[in-house]
Write a protein that binds this DNA or RNA. Structure first.
Lengths: 215, 215, 215, 215
DNA sequence: AATGAATGAGCATTCATTCAT
DNA sequence: TATGAATGAATGCTCATTCAT
């Protein structure tokens, strides 16, 4: 079992590549790593494969990364933040179409990154990574929660639901519904999902009002 | 990488154990497998460890299972069905406390089985398994959906939401919210979560009425 | 670079072999390790070769030893003590023939063990081992020195030489002369070497007297 | 494992460096090689490290040397001869102080070169090198032996010892005593060692006489 | 049936050497 | 000439699986 308590998240590169060509190779390795992790799973992928998929020799992998794990970390660091949702201004938008668009974008982004499919496997054995991911999730959750609090002050959302639970629900529905439905062979209807999420937030009459305000 | 396209789901046991002692060993192996998969992850656990944790020799493992994978399959087969929710009769229960109880039980069951933590890792590389799980999920989904359809005929639920989406939402919220909140260090309040789920289903006034009917 | 500060000299076996066959395999591995270390040098020998020379699979090597290093340590531990010279009683023996016999035995033993040829290489990089060997050498040196001190009290050895230096000289001559001469293609004449060593210890007239006393 | 049976001892330089800069680089590489071989052992040192220690690129190493081995050879060739002891004129010197000085110088030189610490490792696997070293040792031995023979003709040394054995003893004591004593944590007293060596050569009364002759 | 020693293919990693720049 | 990134064969070690006892 490998030990890595004292490493930073991404750590030093074995040697910092300075030339253009180098950066290209590093990128190719990252991209190949991502593709293979998603395709076959983290554990099922090895450094040799990543290298050969990237069109470089095995040894080259180790010039740029100390480890399969470090490559994974680099991938995550780059991209976890990109998942932060934009701050909505509820009075200016049709919440349903706002959410529908947001959901679709979000899921496309998730799919592009793809790493969410390998995360569960990793979180189980890399508690350091688990922390990083938990922190990122908490950040997203906090932003949603704040949004909801503002909305409540404006009196435009249900007043009998616990906002913390609502925001976690929104997160989970955004992340997992498309995943589960796809897994089970169904198509995701982002509009319907948006409606469901809106129902968690807005009483139907308020929602109606908001829609009217825009036009 | 082992090939197993043509195998059945669980396959023949290398020899069908008919005697008590045998059955005990098989059970011990299953239990040890489950414990270790949950504790360390599927990939990180090996047959030798499972055997020694179960107090038998390595070779004995292979008398009862062809494979770590087959043991996993057996674990899943046994237990996926147990997750089917009971058919509720909405006119007889307070939906909120019904859901709260259901959720808590469900999550406790999930935790007892524990395997949901290893599933994502497996689904990625074992499409046969993925199908089994998808089927089980679809079964649960179908039952929830039917419930909702009955309720709609009774006119007691929102009439503008897509029932398919709603039932997926209920499933996902039941499965994932507790997981995510625990991962991120929050306590789950099953009552609040039940209220949120109820809001997806029942208009507040109907819910009020249902509660009154009981008493 | 491997870390092994906290290990004992030989350490735990990966698993203690209890059966006869096992012990035979372990012995075969030790013997093959010794033969190959001597033949090709420590660094030039790898676990796979040792295993195949011993007629077992690579993995079997690792059942009995954690490491090439551990095998080496086992070899040394067994045998360093065997090099302790017997305590001589100068009044009972002809020193020259005593030394001649001793030298020949000693060198044959060294050659049988053979490990002295690989030691210098190891001492350079394994300070823990270096300590063990230094300790063993000091033990031998101490015994020789004590012998000499007794002899000096009996007034039978040169009184103007530093006994510490003399005993180191005896050790070095015993160990290294045969080695160097062989390396350079000369035959060792143990009788002549014994005479030289005796000259370091006994004045010629005393030696004469000692020889007479015996007969 | 590289093959080099058909190479000459040192071989052609990949390109004969004629310019100053080149010679400086070559020297820097030699010096770095020596330093690292001594510090970490021959096997533990690689070309990349030598190059980087010498402040040049990896590839540059291979412009000047075909091999780590060739660099080693160059180091040895340069310096083995330097170990030749001067021809003493016994009638002009105090043998004890002559030897004491000689020993100290010799050991300092050995330490400066340092390579004697890596030699044993190399001799084992490079029989060509072993020959070179054996030849150098034989040369030194021959010179000592000749010295002793002259002295014997002058009747100033023990007449009952085998001169061949004595000269090997002198060599071994000169080379190894300081090494062993240092290894075992003792200080070397060159004067005492000189006295011991003198005892191997000169009868005490002759030595006394030689000392008197000088003053 | 049960055991656990033995197997050897497979993976992560290193490093001597080459070669495009 | 000089560079250092790239190469890929070789090494140490693991582990799923077999099989003699």
């Amino acid at each position: 079992m490998s030990e890595h308590e004292d490493e930073q998240l991404v750590g030093e590169y074995p040697s910092l590549p300075k030339q253009k060509r180098s950066q290209q190779k590093r990128d190719a390795l990252l991209e190949s790593g991502r593709a293979l992790f998603i395709e076959k799973g983290y554990e099922q992928t090895n450094a040799k494969e990543i290298a050969s998929h990237a069109g470089v020799a095995t040894g080259t992998f180790y010039r740029y990364f100390t480890d399969k794990r470090q490559l994974m970390m680099s991938l995550l660091e780059d991209q976890l933040e990109k998942l932060l949702p934009p701050e909505p201004n509820w009075t200016n938008v049709d919440p349903e179409s706002f959410f529908a668009t947001l959901l679709e974008q979000h899921y496309k982004r998730l799919n592009r990154l793809g790493l969410h499919r390998v995360l569960p496997e990793l979180l189980l054995k890399d508690s350091q990574l688990a922390e990083v991911v938990a922190e990122a999730r908490n950040k997203i959750h906090a932003r949603i929660l704040m949004s909801l609090k503002n909305a409540r002050e404006q009196g435009i959302i249900w007043d009998d639901l616990d906002l913390d639970t609502v925001s976690w629900s929104i997160m989970v529905l955004s992340d997992k519904i498309p995943e589960k439905m796809t897994e089970c062979g169904n198509q995701v209807d982002y509009c319907e999902l948006a409606k469901v999420i809106c129902r968690l937030v807005f009483p139907p009459d308020v929602l109606q009002q908001l829609k009217l305000n825009i036009k």
